[in-house]
């Protein structure tokens, strides 16, 4: 939009200005550099941590947790949402329970997960999966119920079986909502992985946050935060990129931008 050659550059203006102001503020002694290390200091820390191989280890640990937990949560959310969306009986049987569980703030599960599953990987994956599960489940359930009856009738008139209707009408019809649900699930996955890692971990970006706090190193806290932002944006961008060819048919304002 706006005729700019690279519209995404517009989005960089504010962060770059803030970074410059911050850097200048520290140089002129207006901002305490030890508590609020400027971009240049963060860059040096990040480079040093990368040379030591430290940052990669943390990133790998966190990514593995998020993606595995996301996979489990998204898969169960999709399957259960499809089941309750497609079958009245399954909905009556399962949905009240699932909604009831949803009313418990997910972080309240932490002590129980640790008690049941130990403080190592399993409890962390369970927490991430739980966080991802709900938005995906709700999205799939409601979008299946919102599928246009008129299009389902087209499938029936032209001789599709029930399975054919699910495959050729329901699935493409819910695709936009499903992808949006995956994206918000992934966002929650990142949120919950921090919670999980703050509870106790020996590696991971969440551990880096906690470690930075205990060691009084604002720079490693900020490096961890920026890395989270980059990973989150990257993962979200991957979902968007992979789904784009599947959604080109949409007639929405967004698609026209």
């Amino acid at each position: 939009m706006g005729g700019a050659a690279r519209p995404w550059l517009t989005g960089l203006i504010v962060p770059v200005l803030l970074g410059v102001a911050w850097e200048a503020g520290v140089r002129f002694g207006l901002i305490p550099g030890r508590l609020m290390p400027p971009p240049s200091a963060l860059w040096h820390s990040a480079v040093a941590m990368t040379h030591a191989g430290e940052l990669q280890t943390h990133v790998a640990a966190t990514l593995w947790r998020v993606l595995t937990g996301f996979g489990i949560g998204a898969a169960t959310g999709t399957v259960l949402g499809t089941l309750t969306g497609a079958s009245e009986r399954a909905r009556l049987l399962l949905d009240p329970t699932i909604q009831g569980v949803r009313a418990i703030p997910s972080l309240a599960w932490v002590p129980l997960f640790i008690l049941w599953l130990g403080i190592f990987e399993t409890s962390k994956l369970a927490l991430v999966a739980l966080g991802v599960f709900f938005p995906v489940y709700l999205g799939v359930l409601s979008s299946i119920q919102d599928v246009d009856r008129k299009l389902v009738e087209v499938g029936r008139v032209f001789g599709l079986t029930s399975f054919g209707i699910v495959r050729r009408i329901t699935m493409p019809a819910i695709m936009p909502v499903w992808i949006a649900a995956l994206r918000s699930g992934l966002g929650l996955g990142f949120m919950f992985v921090i919670a999980a890692e703050l509870m106790g971990a020996s590696e991971g970006l969440g551990f880096l946050l906690l470690d930075g706090q205990q060691m009084g190193r604002a720079d490693s806290i900020l490096v961890a935060m920026v890395t989270f932002a980059l990973l989150g944006k990257l993962a979200d961008g991957m979902i968007v990129g992979l789904s784009r060819p599947l959604l080109r048919w949409q007639d929405t304002v967004r698609a026209r931008l």
Binding site: K150, L151, E153, V154, R168, I169, P172, A173, W249, Q250
Partner: peptide, 11 residues
């Protein structure tokens, strides 16, 4: 039908 009822995700 009265409306075209084309499947929007198919060309």
């Amino acid at each position: 039908f009265q409306e075209p009822r084309l499947l929007p995700w198919l060309n």
